[in-house]
Design a protein around this nucleic acid. Structure first.
Lengths: 217, 217
DNA sequence: ACTTCAGAACTAGACCGTCCAGTTCTCATC
DNA sequence: GATGAGAACTGGACGGTCTAGTTCTGAAGT
């Protein structure tokens, strides 16, 4: 029937447009006020839609919240997940690690993703499944991808990590831990700029290579 | 007048006992339900006290919440903050780092402290000052203490860290990042046991010494 | 006698979800 | 291109529920 069953509707029908408007307004509202603090009337008003339409599209406040979080994690997932070319020499390895760290930091250290993380953490007891999905699609996936790469580099003698998962975990958190955990509690007021991200990434690579490189950088 | 202005009342008067009962009940309730989800009627009932008494002792829901969080952070602060004897040889250094990491993990990785952290993170926009206090009395203080120690060890030639703050930050998160961030999103269902904590601590020390030790472990 | 508190009712307001009458859009058919 | 049926939407009101905070009465303790 309809040929335009597009997954990413550029010019969608009225219903779909309203649905997207509600989702956008709900995202803003939940990020700002939290789950209990968010107001369905306000979401409807902000999206220029009646409450009836909100409930027709999403059924309940819970369902809307779940949709907001999963759609945001999915979008972030796409931006992070691009297979990088693996290095084949010591110099290429160092550059590869730095680029990976810098890109990961650049994508993740944004006010919206930090606020999403706060939101989900605060609702762990109410929505444990959502939090688990965020963990699996975030840190866990990053560490799995890294572990695969590190395992192959170990096989080629470019790294010395008998347990690639451990090395991947340590590299991941050497890069992400300080900025993320600082942002969690100190707010988005002083998120690190690009220069600071590069400093963090560089020292993380140095420490990592000292521990898992062939003969120290 | 009253001679018994004890800071830590072992056997306090009725008023003080009721105050403590309210504080205990409020702590449980806020940890379980969050700020907006907590119910003042329930807190009064759980502490065997009338709402009038609750409001006489703590003024408002906000004030009670602030008191709950600050008293918990203060208590945790006391348990973490004991000056350790600094090492004076390479072997003592390794043992010192391991003991420090293991103790830090043991104290922090408890369901109540993890839940407190989730609670405060979820309320960052409503109570930014509380979150800042938690950060300063938690990770920040730990890193400052470590930086001081590392600076002296660098002076004695036991470490090679021209920037002790950077080394302290990296050691702290090598130890804490994986367990804490996993617990934040995956819940308290599978908090690491002592054996796992020792594995994490040991590998953290190894990586740290490879990067900041004098000639590798 | 005098303070203190329990217990319960009460105020004032917020909010989720529903309902309905009237309007607007979409799209197949003519 | 006009038309008409049916789906989608609006705007507002509203029921029922919940909650923070106040107030009142009576009892208990000192």
């Amino acid at each position: 029937m309809a040929v335009e069953e597009d997954a990413v509707p550029v010019e969608a029908g009225r219903s779909e447009r309203k649905r997207q408007a509600v989702l956008a307004a709900a995202t803003e509202t939940f990020l700002k006020a939290g789950y209990l603090g968010a107001n369905m009337d306000e979401i409807a008003a902000m999206s220029g839609v009646s409450k009836q339409t909100v409930y027709k599209n999403f059924g309940s406040k819970e369902a809307l919240f779940i949709e907001v979080v999963t759609s945001m994690t999915g979008a972030a997932d796409l931006r992070v997940h691009t297979a990088p070319a693996e290095p084949d020499s010591a110099e290429a390895l160092e550059q590869f690690l730095f680029d990976y760290a810098h890109r990961q930091l650049s994508v993740v250290m944004t006010p919206r993703l930090m606020q999403l993380r706060r939101l989900v953490i605060g609702e762990v007891s109410r929505f444990p499944d959502l939090a688990q999905v965020l963990y699996e699609r975030g840190p866990q996936r990053a560490m799995q991808v890294l572990a695969g790469i590190f395992g192959r580099l170990d096989g080629r003698g470019l790294l010395a990590c008998p347990e690639p998962e451990v090395a991947a975990t340590n590299f991941n958190w050497l890069v992400m831990a300080e900025p993320v955990n600082r942002a969690m509690l100190m707010g988005d007021g002083e998120l690190p700029d690009d220069a600071q991200l590069r400093v963090v990434a560089k020292e993380a690579v140095r420490v990592f290579l000292a521990a898992y490189g062939r003969q120290g950088s």
